[in-house]
Amino acid sequence: MANGSRQAAWEFFGAELKRRREDRGLTQADLGTRVFVSGGYIGQFEQAIRKPQLDIAQRIDQALQTDGIFERLCRKLIDDRRYAEYFAEVVELERVATRICEFAPTVVPGLLQTKAYAEAVTLAANPFVTDEYVEDIVGARLERARILKDATRPEYWVILHENVVRIPVGGPQAMAEQLEHVAGLTRERTVWATVIPYATGAHAAMTGDLRLMDFEDAPPVAYTETSFSGTLMDDPAVVKRAHRAYDLLRVAALSPEASLALIESAAEDHRRCTPTI
């Protein structure tokens, strides 16, 4: 589904939600109380500013007695084949997040990837796919990164393990360009990037990627991912634990200045390894 038609579909979702709510004589605050979110949150759904998580759509169906229509619409709209099923909802959430904090232990996060790097990562995980498949996946990843160019872009904090800057994904030239891209975004103050060096040893969240997202008028969420699955969590106690883990990662990381120096130095190292013609 193209971006324009997808947005139009979410606008239909919002308009239908408003109509059904008003038909039952409920205010936004009334419905919010019944589905355990704020009235402002319901208003954002109705204006298609924010997209509901699947469990909220299910609770809306229960509150409005709508026979599952909002659950079906939500499932349809988050079913983007360019993303793994467990990640599609995360993509919708990051578009409206006010702050994203990410820890990447193995590869550069998707929001920061260059085209060549994204192609290399995609092919490494899927060596027998067609060029069209790679183009779709990489295109979706680059499309996601546009949120960092918006005037309303979120604060974006990222902690990279030194693995990420040392492993030459896509070859030395592609890796050098990737690190230069991260360094450039850091110098532009579009992102706040730090690095956990090898010397740190053991650290929090060693089992996989961690992402925290905050919103204007909604509770924060946490997302963890391993090679073959991801988990989106909104339980306050779990999210609190995830924030604590991220705080520990911040402490383990180098200062922003030292991190930038390491990233740029690693880019130069990769560049020197690039064969000359």
Results as ranks from 00 to 15, higher is better:
residue 243 H to E: 14
residue 24 R to H: 06
residue 113 Q to T: 10
residue 193 A to Q: 00
residue 80 D to A: 01
residue 254 L to W: 00
residue 254 L to N: 01
residue 109 P to K: 05
residue 45 F to R: 10
residue 217 D to P: 12
residue 10 W to I: 07
residue 186 T to K: 01
residue 39 G to I: 04
residue 220 P to V: 06
residue 141 R to W: 05
residue 49 I to Y: 14
residue 171 G to L: 01
residue 259 S to A: 01
residue 199 A to R: 09
residue 129 V to F: 11
residue 172 P to N: 03
residue 58 Q to F: 11
residue 130 T to K: 04
residue 112 L to C: 01
residue 44 Q to T: 15
residue 121 V to N: 06
residue 167 I to C: 10
residue 111 L to I: 11
residue 101 C to E: 15
residue 11 E to Q: 15
residue 274 T to E: 09
residue 184 G to T: 04
residue 223 Y to Q: 00
residue 190 T to M: 00
residue 66 T to W: 03
residue 226 T to W: 00
residue 84 A to C: 09
residue 35 V to E: 02
residue 277 I to F: 15
residue 224 T to S: 06
residue 155 E to Y: 14
residue 88 A to W: 05
residue 24 R to W: 03
residue 257 E to R: 12
residue 135 E to D: 13
residue 47 Q to M: 15
residue 203 H to G: 06
residue 3 N to V: 13
residue 199 A to F: 03
residue 179 L to G: 03
residue 1 M to D: 04
residue 136 D to Y: 08
residue 102 E to S: 14
residue 66 T to Q: 00
residue 218 A to C: 14
residue 135 E to T: 13
residue 221 V to S: 03
residue 246 Y to A: 10
residue 140 A to H: 01
residue 2 A to G: 12
residue 219 P to Q: 06
residue 26 L to T: 00
residue 228 F to C: 14
residue 268 E to M: 12
residue 37 V to F: 08
residue 105 P to Y: 00
residue 43 G to M: 07
residue 98 T to G: 05
residue 157 W to N: 10
residue 114 T to K: 11
residue 1 M to T: 02
residue 216 E to F: 05
residue 236 P to Y: 10
residue 143 E to Y: 09
residue 266 A to L: 13
residue 197 P to I: 01
residue 54 L to S: 12
residue 136 D to I: 07
residue 273 C to V: 12
residue 262 L to K: 09
residue 236 P to Q: 05
residue 220 P to S: 04
residue 105 P to H: 06
residue 192 W to S: 15
residue 69 I to E: 09
residue 200 T to S: 10
residue 233 M to C: 08
residue 183 A to Y: 03
residue 209 D to S: 11
residue 179 L to S: 00
residue 42 I to V: 06
residue 86 Y to Q: 09
residue 168 P to E: 02
residue 149 K to L: 15
residue 254 L to R: 04
residue 82 R to D: 14
residue 80 D to Q: 10
residue 267 A to W: 08
residue 229 S to N: 12
residue 185 L to W: 04
residue 119 E to Q: 14
residue 88 A to K: 13
residue 68 G to N: 07
residue 125 A to I: 05
residue 186 T to N: 13
residue 154 P to Y: 07
residue 12 F to N: 11
residue 164 V to P: 01
residue 235 D to F: 09
residue 92 E to T: 05
residue 5 S to A: 10
residue 46 E to L: 05
residue 130 T to V: 05
residue 147 I to Y: 04
residue 250 R to G: 09
residue 185 L to V: 06
residue 36 F to K: 13
residue 263 I to W: 05
residue 164 V to Y: 02
residue 173 Q to F: 03
